[in-house]
Design a protein around this nucleic acid. Structure first.
Lengths: 345, 345
DNA sequence: GCGTTTTCTGTAAGCGCTTTCATCATAGCA
DNA sequence: TGCTATGATGAAAGCGCTTACAGAAAACGC
């Protein structure tokens, strides 16, 4: 096995042409005689030649790579997200560079990511603070923000869900249909915009139904099962009175259910539980989770498209807003309408 | 805002030195006078200079990038996996290129990934068939396989879990402790080695306890909640007799529980359910899932280390085997030993 | 049949960086 | 004082590729 890999000149030599011609047939950037194309193609396959990415990037202008910045946390909804992005990016012939923000680092100043290594960046992390985003923006790096709005009203495209409407409809449902009035809310991570909008929707629904907002009923869920569980457990110990919990997202809802179950509370009889996102396991929970469907994959794909458009000099939409939809299952108290049971329990 | 980014020569000019010197202070590859270092540093900051990755790669030998090949499927256990890899890779100063195998493509021949764009590849996909792996191996690309052994006994390092032992211990538990004898098994995806070893462990436990193997009790779980659910539902319709289900993995276990619950079967009273992996939501299921812990993140980190070692010319271990551990919760029938309930239901 | 396109192909100039190699002070040592 | 290690720096050669630019051959128009 040859250790050294074939370069464009090897191919050129074998095919008896110049490297420029090889480059042309590889990229199809100029007309090449049919016969020549064949010879070059042959040479390429016999040599197993693959263009060297770095060289290509250096010579051309683009890097052919898109970067994604992710927070360290591993939530289930990351995968549809990454999948949506990956799909789009691959179709456009780009590579995907994923940077998982390190836990320790305040900002990603340490990582020389972006700017030079990628043609553009999809940013999904609260860690990358405003200054960092501003810096990247000023450096001219094409950016698209996921689930957060740009700092200082910078004209950076961003994607968002209709969080407020989804949350409002959801809460309205448990109030009007199930008569719940002591509805708790679990906030997401500090500064998370999705959470802020969901809280707004929650409050609107309360207000609309004449239920006063009670700050005691708001706690930290962190969009995380374990955090949510702890919060609910401490509420239970404190004897807080509630008959429903809007967990902020589905992960947290899972933690909420575990806490409730562990304390002997029945869902939804004693406490209704609602999530947000409609992750895959939502329908598998016991009871199946009433939640709001967020088209995560589609939104991610949209973000990738916006970035690609931007890179190609097109004007991307300033904001992409994806609709959400309430998904009624049983954790809110609604009956199971799916196929009948086999056995009476 | 300057549109064009600063290059090394800009820095050199500003600092009044040669580009070689700038390179030296940036990389610390040779002694530079203190005063000069200061001047260069200043120039770098005022210019906001960041070395261009591609150029660096071209000039140096390495690309500074590691690739990961993932199948399209999005399972929850991917995240610890990616996290483990990302962490390790970042610590080593490499970038991570993630390729999600496309659904349609037979092999990844279409993607020019690997070889040239990365210094090495972590492969976790059954899609990339043996020939493709062989091809990559022959091309001299450093490789590490995740959760599968190399084709044709090629000396490619790979990481594995002690699947057989974990499964054996787990099944032995429900047999000896809970007296189950009609234990079903849900296989993972076709050709999945983890699944094969788990099945072997399952059979060994059966044999050890004098229970004959019954092919009817083996079905397809696909390591997927929905597939597992369907299988169990059809078993239920067929009236198959079983008192325990080893779901193959935790995702499938989730589907199994949903099917059982939906049919009015009690877990674990009517049917014990066991998973494998101990994903985060395992402990949150109702009832909490008895499973086998696989150190996914550690294994992924180990794989990354092995790849890095290989790239740096060190001899990587041929095989990395990670121990597994049975995690007893309540889905097998064991009592809940955690903190007491707050309320009697 | 001669100027003019049109096709095809080669030459060569970088892209921004790393890295010998050579240079030139200094400093060390006899 | 003379000669060599040593430290600090610059000049320049690429890394593998893209892409003007230009030349040569073939096709076209009148």
């Amino acid at each position: 096995m040859a250790k050294r890999r074939a370069t464009i000149s090897d191919v050129a030599k074998l095919a008896g042409v110049s490297i420029a011609t090889v480059s042309r047939v590889v990229n199809g950037t100029a007309p090449v005689a049919e016969e020549t194309v064949r010879r070059v193609r042959d040479a390429i396959t016999t040599l197993g030649y693959t263009p060297h990415a770095a060289a290509r990037k250096l010579a051309g202008r683009e890097t052919g790579t898109l970067g994604v910045l992710l927070p360290e946390v591993a939530a289930e909804f990351f995968f549809p997200l990454v999948r949506g992005i990956a799909e789009e990016v691959r179709n456009a012939g780009y590579d995907l560079l994923i940077h998982v923000a390190s836990s320790g680092q305040e900002s990603s100043l340490s990582t020389p990511l972006g700017e030079h290594n990628t043609d553009g960046l999809l940013i999904f992390t609260g860690r990358l603070n405003d200054e960092e985003i501003t810096r990247l923006y000023n450096s001219g790096c094409p950016l698209v923000l996921l689930y957060r709005s740009p700092p200082d009203n910078l004209p950076i495209p961003y994607v968002m869900f209709e969080n407020k409407k989804g949350a409002r409809d959801l809460i309205d449902h448990v109030i009007t249909v199930h008569g719940r009035r002591r509805i708790a809310f679990l906030r997401g991570p500090e500064g998370n915009e999705d959470s802020e909008w969901r809280e707004r929707g929650y409050r609107e629904a309360l207000e609309k139904n004449g239920i006063p907002f009670d700050a005691d009923l708001v706690g930290m869920g962190g969009f995380d099962a374990d955090i949510a569980r702890e919060t609910v457990e401490s509420w239970l110990i404190d004897g807080l009175d509630f008959d429903a919990i809007f967990a902020g997202d589905d992960e947290a809802a899972m933690g909420v259910m575990a806490a409730l179950r562990h304390a002997g509370k029945k869902v939804p009889d004693d406490v209704a539980v609602m999530g947000f996102d409609d992750i895959n396991s939502a329908k598998l929970m016991a009871p199946p989770l009433t939640t709001v469907r967020a088209p995560i994959e589609a939104a991610a794909a949209g973000a990738a498209q916006a970035l690609l458009a931007q890179i190609n000099g097109k004007e991307p939409p300033h904001q992409l807003r994806y609709p959400t939809q309430v998904i009624i299952r049983q954790s809110c108290g609604c009956p199971d309408t799916s196929s009948p049971k086999m056995t009476a329990s």
